[in-house]
């Protein structure tokens, strides 16, 4: 149904002088000014359909994607904010830890310096002690060394003295010396104290009855008799006497009864002197 109402702008009939057909398509103009209900209804329907289609395929998807983007941005912003908070927290922790670390470093440095100082003092003390000990040891060694040297000098002097004495006595030995030694021997026997004599008697009570008397030179009869009488007097018993000559004695005599031996001769004295020197040498070496 096509219904034409009211508005009709009639430009055509009033414009005959200009030439109606050649100027404007009046029919077309009339058509546009006409109000067609069908066109109106279809236009409304058309618009509503377009509204539904655009709502379905344009507005909702765009709104959806904008909302998704906004959510994503908000989520990222929230995450960034959380990260910022976390970073700030970590930064403050780091600053705090750094300060604490500086403090710890300072304390550790002070402790280390104190420890080094104490250790240095201890080491210095220890070194001083060890040096003192070393000095004492060196002093002791020096003293000992000087003593040893002194002793060696003494021993050497003694050795030289004994050699000199031995040489001198060998040169000076003779019957006169022997007589003098025999007299000394007799005098020594006569001057023995009672305890010594008793001890001598006890020792020789079980020994052999033979008494060997060695001398460097031949003893005179008078001397032999004197010796026999003296021995009998001391030992209170009779013995058999055997007199021998022994040139090794240099001068003097030696009396031997079993294990017991009495001597008053140069050789034995020199041997005793040598033995004494040997003991002194061993003693000095042992130190």
């Amino acid at each position: 149904m096509r219904c034409i109402v009211g508005l009709k702008i009639m430009l055509g009939p009033e414009m005959n002088g200009v030439g109606r057909q050649s100027l404007l398509p009046t029919r077309c103009l009339e058509k546009t000014v006409e109000l067609s209900w069908s066109t109106l209804a279809l236009e409304m329907f058309n618009f509503l359909v377009l509204l539904w289609l655009l709502k379905r395929f344009f507005y909702k998807p765009v709104q959806s994607v904008i909302k998704r983007r906004q959510d994503s941005i908000e989520e990222r912003l929230a995450r960034a904010e959380q990260m910022e908070v976390k970073a700030n927290k970590m930064l403050s922790q780091y600053e705090e830890r750094k300060e604490q670390w500086h403090l710890e470093c300072e304390q550790a440095r002070e402790a280390l310096q104190t420890e080094i100082k104490l250790k240095r003092e201890k080491e210095e003390r220890s070194l001083r002690d060890s040096l003192e000990q070393e000095r004492q040891r060196n002093l002791t060694l020096e003293i000992q060394h000087s003593h040893d040297l002194e002793r060696q000098l003494e021993l050497r002097a003694l050795e030289q003295g004994s050699q000199f004495a031995a040489q001198l006595l060998k040169l000076a030995s003779g019957p006169e010396l022997e007589n003098r030694l025999i007299e000394l021997f007799i005098h020594a026997l006569n001057s023995l104290d009672e305890d010594r004599i008793v001890e001598l008697r006890n020792q020789l009570s079980h020994s052999d009855a033979l008494m060997q008397i060695s001398s460097a030179f031949t003893l005179t009869e008078e001397k032999r008799i004197t010796i026999k009488k003296l021995m009998k007097k001391i030992l209170q018993r009779d013995l058999q006497y055997h007199f021998v000559e022994d040139s090794e004695l240099v001068a003097g005599l030696r009396i031997r009864v079993g294990p017991w031996e009495l001597g008053a001769n140069i050789n034995d004295e020199l041997l005793g002197f040598s033995s004494l020197m040997g003991d002194l040498m061993i003693e000095s070496t042992g130190r």
């Binding site: 655009l54 344009f58 507005y59 998807p61 994607v65 904008i66 994503s72």
Partner: peptide, 28 residues
Amino acid sequence: LTVLALVVMRRLELIPGPMQTLAEGIHG
């Protein structure tokens, strides 16, 4: 208009292309 909307809205991305940007611009 419907076909245009369908073409533009066929693949919507969070990071928009030129057409999607235009559509979102109009909408905005």
